[in-house]
Design a protein around this nucleic acid. Structure first.
Length: 433
RNA sequence: GCCCCCAUCGUCUAGCGGCCUAGGACACCGGCCUUUCACGCCGGCAGCACGGGUUCGAAUCCCGUUGGGGGUGCCA
């Protein structure tokens, strides 16, 4: 038995599509699982698609996901001779004919072409429904069918794993493979489509299909991989979130569900949050850095303080991009006030009272989270309020918001001077209203 | 129109003829914990599209209906 050889063959049409990423992933899983090889084949059959930026885009995305390939990428734009030879051969064997400058393949008018698809079972087409398709255009370039069949044969591919939208080209490619003289049959696996809420194939126009954009939102690569593998496949033991090595060990193409799967951002984020929580505090702080740096106040972030502050939001972060909003008050000279929170919380009768009591007590309290905690608690007691309610005005004064990281720990990091200053500023703002 | 495919909670899935009173996860709704929000924990809601077969027995096999999707380029 020869080694398993797979290929991921994207057309470079822009940033990598989620569906393509999933296809790449499944190919990679099969290769890893079987100890086989995976090659990257760029289907840049025309100049428009050969633009370096487009190709770099693919590399970057694949790299991010850590999907590795064996050997150098194969560029179809560099293999035109091969395609031409094949077409000439078909022409001379009378398997193809010239029509209006183009070359068409002769499809038999009877019989059927079928294959046993690893995910969908037997798929069968009647030949009479397949037209004599073009294998070489009038301009002399090979079509997708030709390049596909020739390359899969020439590169010794054994398994073709691709999207369901390719099902209808499969009989054509099978015919061409036979015409090339291949005696073996490829294994095909057509993956279910990833669809949107309307159950339609994800499209560039309507949906956010660029893998890149999820990266930009702060989705972690391993979380993305983990989520993607769950679209069309489920582990037998019901453990969904797990290391990629385990997935490799468990994954089976024949277990892939043939029906289309809806892309669920909520679930992606839930899984991402789980990965974030599992990170070490140091790794999390590190991962946050680019997101913080891009803020207007990014230059004021010092690494020592970041390490203290990051753990306070780690378990509250679903995607990295939402962390800056939770942390800004640590780095801003004065907090940015949420108008709604201010109105709701500072508008109460007790708010000014609590602020002034807090300012006094805090001026002399030992500066440790637990003590600050107790200090606020007794102030609450004074006014017959639970701590949950009593801490609110202080929180708004210091962070600008009604919700955020744990207050007393935050205060400890911020330091007495800043805290008192902010409370005083809030008092003044209150008076001016 | 024609060709091909698909059909289990709202969503992603487990299920491969008896372990199913259909399991898990996300979402949602309660509750507990609690310094807000989260996290965590406990509980709840909710599904085999329909109709016929086959079988002692069907979510599981077959046929049909309905619904959904993909493809129908000298794009890939």
């Amino acid at each position: 038995m020869s080694t398993t050889r797979l290929r991921f063959a994207p057309a470079p049409t822009g940033s990598l599509h989620l569906g393509s990423a999933r296809t790449a992933l499944f190919n990679w899983l099969v290769a890893r699982r079987s100890g086989g090889e995976l090659i990257l084949r760029i289907e840049d059959t025309n100049a428009e698609l050969s633009r370096p930026e487009l190709i770099d885009n693919i590399y970057r995305s694949l790299d991010w996901l850590q999907i590795e390939f064996d050997g150098d990428p194969v560029r179809q734009s560099e293999r035109t001779d091969l395609y031409n030879d094949a077409v000439e051969q078909w022409l001379s064997n009378d398997l193809a004919y010239v029509d209006d400058g183009a070359v068409r393949f002769r499809v038999p008018s009877d019989g059927t072409t079928s294959w046993d698809d690893l995910v969908r079972g037997t798929v069968s087409f009647e030949n009479r429904h397949i037209e004599d398709f073009v294998v070489r255009r009038a301009d002399g370039t090979a079509t997708f069918f030709t390049a596909n069949a020739v390359d899969d044969f020439d590169l010794g591919i054994t398994h073709v794993v691709r999207g369901e939208d390719m099902v209808n080209v499969t009989p054509k490619v099978i015919m061409l493979r036979r015409a090339l003289g291949a005696s073996d049959v490829l294994e095909f696996a057509h993956l279910p489509l990833i669809v949107n809420e309307q159950r339609k194939k994800l499209s560039k126009r309507r949906d956010d299909v660029a893998l890149e954009s999820y990266r930009e939102r702060g989705v972690l690569a391993p979380a993305m991989i983990n989520y993607l593998v769950l679209l069309g496949w489920g582990p037998p033991d019901d453990i969904e979130v797990r290391p990629i090595e385990e997935i490799v060990a468990l994954f089976e193409l024949t277990d892939v569900n043939p029906s289309s799967a809806m892309f669920d951002l909520k679930k992606l984020e839930a899984i991402n949050a789980e990965y974030i929580r599992a990170m070490s505090a140091g790794d999390f702080a590190q991962a946050l850095t680019p997101w913080l740096d891009s803020q207007p106040w990014g230059s004021t972030v010092d690494p020592d303080q970041l390490v203290k502050v990051a753990p306070l939001v780690q378990e509250r972060t679903k995607v990295l991009s939402e962390a800056p909003q939770q942390l800004d008050f640590f780095f801003l000279p004065s907090p940015e006030f949420d108008e709604v929170a201010w109105a709701k919380i500072m508008g109460t009768q007790e708010a000014p009272l609590i602020l002034s009591s807090a300012k006094n007590a805090l001026a002399k309290a030992e500066w440790v989270g637990e003590v600050l905690h107790e200090t606020l608690r007794s102030i609450g007691d004074e006014y017959g309020m639970k701590l949950g309610k009593a801490q609110a005005p202080v929180r708004v004064a210091i962070t600008g918001r009604a919700v955020g990281p744990p207050l007393f720990e935050s205060m400890q990091v911020l330091g007495r001077e800043t805290v008192i200053e902010r409370i005083a500023a809030a008092q003044q703002k209150l008076e001016e209203q």
